[in-house]
């Protein structure tokens, strides 16, 4: 900018015009180089994503078959699949989200509607943002301390609790953001009609913000479905078919983690199949969430 100004502010003789032209050329060159570098950075980002997806498709498709969905994990050399892991992941992610979502929505509502600038509101907002980015392995350790150790063992419930703790701040953030987008005139109009505030919030604001909140929930499901670290010390994993939440429960990420380091080809192949499954699931949820948000706002 300073460069731009100095070269513009010289009126006058030919010599200066020539200098300006030369300066202009060098400015343009710098600009071109930087623009090329930025394009390159973007291309690198896209190539990395492509590389990950290609690796997953390449190695995952080899192992993909109907068996993956119809059989539970089995001993090496036997016909095993990932059924128990897939179902375990679904159960834990969905119940975890179902528990975390209402809490998150209430907290988000509190922040947007009741405690905009109060010290308590600021504290809650701060803490929720910390939780949003806190290392998920610590949440696993925490749940291990409060639910696994005292209650004598790893369980599906412990896994669900860990995932619910991860869900809460995601839903808090989207709920608060979405509620803030609602114009105050709408609120005033509803209250002016004589409706109590809680009805105004539940029936008007939540309804208006529903697309955004659902987006948040989808993103939360996508996030917890791919989480490994919080489940290692909580739901642990289970080689057999089990839907008993008081027992250790299998999940896709933990199974992938165990199988990927194993000595057996068929287990490693299953790990890749699982990796492909989970990535496709998580990415489609993300894309769905984004499309939904854009079509409604």
């Amino acid at each position: 900018m300073s460069l731009a100004l100095s070269s513009m502010s010289h009126p006058g003789p030919r010599k200066d015009v020539a200098t300006a032209a030369r300066l202009g050329a060098s400015r343009k060159r710098t600009d071109r180089i930087i623009r090329t570098l930025c394009l390159a950075a973007t291309i690198i980002g896209l190539v990395l994503l492509a590389s990950i997806l290609i690796t997953l498709f390449y190695r995952g498709f080899e192992a993909m078959s109907l068996r993956v969905f119809t059989h539970v994990t089995a001993a090496p050399g036997s016909e095993g699949g990932l059924l128990n892991a897939i179902v375990g992941s679904l159960i834990q992610s969905l119940i975890g989200t179902a528990i975390g979502t209402p809490i998150g929505m209430l907290v988000g509502t509190y922040l947007a509607e009741y405690a905009k600038d109060s010290w308590l509101g600021n504290a809650v907002r701060f803490v929720s943002d910390i939780l949003l980015s806190a290392p998920s392995i610590l949440i696993g350790l925490f749940v291990y301390q409060i639910l696994v150790l005292p209650f004598g063992g790893f369980s599906g419930w412990a896994g669900i609790a860990a995932l619910a703790i991860i869900v809460i701040p995601i839903v808090v953030r989207t709920t608060e953001d979405m509620l803030q987008l609602i114009p105050n005139t709408l609120r005033e109009a509803v209250v002016g009609l004589g409706a109590p505030k809680w009805k105004m919030i539940v029936l008007i604001c939540w309804r208006a913000a529903i697309a955004g909140i659902i987006t948040g929930i989808l993103l939360a499901v996508a996030r917890v479905a791919g989480e490994t670290a919080p489940l290692l010390f909580t739901s642990l994993g289970n080689n057999a078919w089990s839907t008993d939440l008081s027992k250790p429960m299998s999940s896709l990420p933990v199974t992938i983690y165990a199988f990927a380091g194993s000595p057996f080809e068929d287990w490693i192949a299953l790990a890749w199949a699982g990796a492909l499954l989970i990535t496709l699931g998580v990415l489609s949820l993300n894309i769905l969430a984004r499309t939904l948000l854009r079509s409604r706002i």
């Binding site: 001993a75 050399g77 642990l236 057999a240 250790p248």
Partner: peptide, 24 residues
């Protein structure tokens, strides 16, 4: 773990015992 899984699988029918071994 692999051999315990294998044994568990093979023993289920003859013994009627289902073994759930977690390699932790």
């Amino acid at each position: 773990n692999p051999i315990y899984q294998k044994w568990a699988e093979a023993a289920r029918t003859p013994t009627g015992i289902q073994v759930n071994y977690q390699s932790v």
